[in-house]
C-alpha cells in the first residue's frame, strides 16, 4: 500500500475508477428510466452550455458570409429602387397615370437582430431585439432574405418572441409559383432543412425543383417571397399531394431578419370582420 510513490499507478487507478463508474452509470441509464432521465438531464445541461459557446463561435465565423449576403441584398434593393425611380420619373411625365407610391405600398420592413434561436426541438422559438417600442405587434410576419422565418407571438417593450417556421404548430400559406396551387406549409419536426407543403390537389402537376413562394393570401406575409424548392412528393389518402420542400433558409445560420409590418392589416381585418357578421 505504502510503496506507491510514482504517479503513474495512481493515475492508472483513477482512470480505471472513472471507467468503471462510467460503465456502471451507463448500465443504470440503460436499465432504469428514472436514472436515465436524471443522467441525461445533467448531460443536456453541459451540452447546452457547450452549444451556446459553439453558436457564439459560429456567429463570428459566419459574420463574413452574413455581411456578403447583406451587401448583395443591399445592391439588389438599390437596383430595384433605381428602377422604380426611373419608372416614377417616366410616370410623372404622364400625369394622368401617376399615383403616389405611398398609398399603394402595403408592407413595410423593420430590420431586427436575432438574439435567441433554437432548431433542435419540436416547438422552436426565436427572440429578436425589436419590440413594442419599435412598432412590432403580435401576429406580424418575420422574413429573412432567404424566406419566411416565423410569426410574432408575443411582444415586450424591447423584444419580440417569434414562433419559428420550425414549429410543428406553425403554418404559412404557400403556393407553387408555376401552377399557383396553394396550401399550408408546415414543418413535420424532423429535419430543420425541410418543410411540408400539404393540401395540394392531386391533379396539380409539379416537378422536382419547382419553386415554392408565399401565396400572399394571409395579411401576414407579402406574396412571392421565395421559400424553397420541391424535393419530392407523395400522394396522401389518394386525394392530395404532400410535397417535401427544401427550404432556402438555413435556420442554423440565421442572424438578421426583417419584421413585416402590414400597414393595411387593421383595415383588412375590420373588413373581413364586418362581412363575417
Amino acid at each position: 500500500m505504502a510503496k506507491r510513490s510514482s504517479v503513474t499507478p495512481i493515475l492508472a487507478t483513477i482512470v480505471l475508477f472513472l471507467l468503471l463508474e462510467a460503465g456502471s452509470l451507463l448500465m443504470m441509464a440503460n436499465s432504469s428510466i428514472f436514472q436515465q432521465i436524471r443522467i441525461y438531464g445533467v448531460l443536456m445541461q453541459f451540452q447546452g452550455k457547450f452549444m451556446r459557446a459553439q453558436t457564439n463561435i459560429n456567429y463570428y465565423q459566419n459574420l463574413k458570409t452574413v455581411n456578403e449576403q447583406l451587401a448583395q441584398q443591399n445592391t439588389r434593393l438599390l437596383n430595384e429602387l433605381d428602377r422604380y425611380r426611373t419608372q416614377l420619373d417616366t410616370l410623372k411625365k404622364d400625369t394622368l397615370a401617376y399615383k403616389p407610391l405611398t398609398d399603394s405600398s402595403c408592407f413595410e420592413y423593420l430590420p431586427a437582430k436575432i438574439i435567441g434561436n433554437s432548431i433542435n426541438k419540436n416547438h422552436n422559438f426565436i427572440v429578436i431585439d425589436k419590440g413594442q417600442k419599435d412598432g412590432v405587434r403580435q401576429d406580424m410576419g418575420v422574413i429573412s432574405p432567404n424566406g419566411v422565418v416565423g410569426v410574432v407571438s408575443a411582444v415586450s417593450d424591447n423584444f419580440a418572441y417569434i414562433i419559428s417556421l420550425l414549429n410543428i404548430n406553425q403554418s404559412v400559406s404557400a403556393k407553387i409559383s408555376r401552377s399557383g396551387a396553394f396550401g399550408p406549409l408546415i414543418w413535420d419536426g424532423k429535419n430543420p432543412g425541410y418543410a411540408l407543403l400539404t393540401e395540394i390537389p392531386q391533379h396539380i402537376k409539379l416537378q422536382i425543383g419547382d419553386s415554392i413562394v408565399t401565396s400572399g393570401f394571409s395579411s401576414i406575409f407579402p406574396p412571392d417571397i421565395p421559400l424553397g424548392t420541391v424535393r419530392k412528393s407523395k400522394i396522401i389518402m389518394g386525394t392530395h399531394h404532400e410535397i417535401q420542400v427544401k427550404l432556402f433558409q438555413d435556420f442554423r445560420t440565421l442572424h438578421f431578419v426583417n419584421v413585416v409590418i402590414n400597414t393595411h392589416k387593421d383595415e383588412i381585418d375590420k373588413l373581413s370582420k364586418t362581412n363575417e357578421k
Binding site: L20, S24, M27, S31, S32
Partner: peptide
C-alpha cells in the same frame, strides 16, 4: 436491482 447501481457503489468503496 437497477443494473449497475451496486457496481458503482462497490467500485467507489474499493476506490
Amino acid at each position: 436491482s437497477i443494473m449497475g447501481l451496486n457496481a458503482a457503489a462497490a467500485v467507489f468503496l474499493a476506490f
